[in-house]
């Protein structure tokens, strides 16, 4: 689904985003991307949606080479990738329903298709009753659910979440995680960048750890920290 081959992204002489990163994420996987701030997680995600281009190396998403992809094709790439962000990135001044509908309008979906699909996805994320609300009238967790609904309404094969629980309390975070897990079970590849140690430890999924733009660990059914590093601040018996 996602292949990075010797990818480098250099912002400036002293600023390296990603350094010689090679990895392969299979279709249907659930992957945690971990690492301290500035380790290159955001760069990784921005490269995936071709917001920026790599300095060196090749990136392939869903069999499409991003290096040779023309600018005009980028919108179509993004429609095949759902994105969830820490700050939700909802369209202000639009109701929950309209925010989700926008992702469908963009693809040229018919009004009838929109009327059918939006309520469907809103009920999936548990917001059936709040379609008419404005984003500002919702709690953080609810806004993030709208964001997930919008990301998933086109049934993309890849869903990227950048610190989706970063602004949420633990209980609300679990709800969002369950949602992402369910989406993954439908066959969608999920890549989630996070700092949430507890969540990663609980889920026991593949963990890709970055540090200073370099891959330091890529482990299946893993925890946030390496076993021999010892748990920091959380009990090992979870």
């Amino acid at each position: 689904m996602v292949v990075f081959d010797e990818v480098r992204k250099i912002y400036g002489p002293d600023s390296v985003g990603i350094d010689r990163l090679s990895l392969n994420i299979e279709h249907g996987e659930f992957v945690f991307l971990v690492g301290p701030s500035g380790s290159g997680k955001s760069t990784f995600i921005r490269l995936l949606i071709k917001e920026i281009d790599p300095t060196e190396g090749t990136i392939t998403v869903g069999g499409r080479n991003l290096n040779t992809m023309r600018r005009s094709k980028v919108p179509y790439l993004r429609r095949s990738i759902g994105c969830v962000f820490q700050d939700y990135k909802l369209l202000p001044g639009r109701s929950v329903y309209d925010n989700v509908a926008y992702a469908l309008q963009v693809t040229g979906e018919s009004p009838r298709g929109i009327k059918r699909k939006v309520p469907e996805i809103l009920s999936l994320v548990g917001l059936s009753e709040k379609g008419g609300r404005m984003p500002t009238e919702l709690s953080g967790g609810e806004q993030q659910r709208v964001s997930v609904a919008r990301a998933f309404v086109n049934h993309p094969r890849l869903l990227i979440a950048d610190e989706p629980t970063g602004n949420l309390d633990p209980e609300t975070s679990i709800g969002i995680m369950q949602l992402l897990y369910r989406i993954n079970r439908t066959g969608t590849t999920v890549i989630m960048a996070t700092h949430d140690r507890e969540m990663v430890d609980k889920m026991q999924m593949r963990v890709i750890a970055l540090e200073d733009g370099r891959l330091v660990r890529d482990q299946r059914q893993a925890r946030y920290a390496r076993a021999d590093e010892g748990p920091v601040g959380s009990s090992p018996a979870r």
Binding site: Y76, R78, C83, K89, L90, L91, P92, A103
Partner: peptide, 16 residues
């Protein structure tokens, strides 16, 4: 600006 940024992330073409 923000609105346009979000629209692009959702996959809207420039003309859309």
């Amino acid at each position: 600006r923000r609105e346009v940024e979000v629209m692009k992330l959702v996959g809207a073409t420039n003309w859309f």
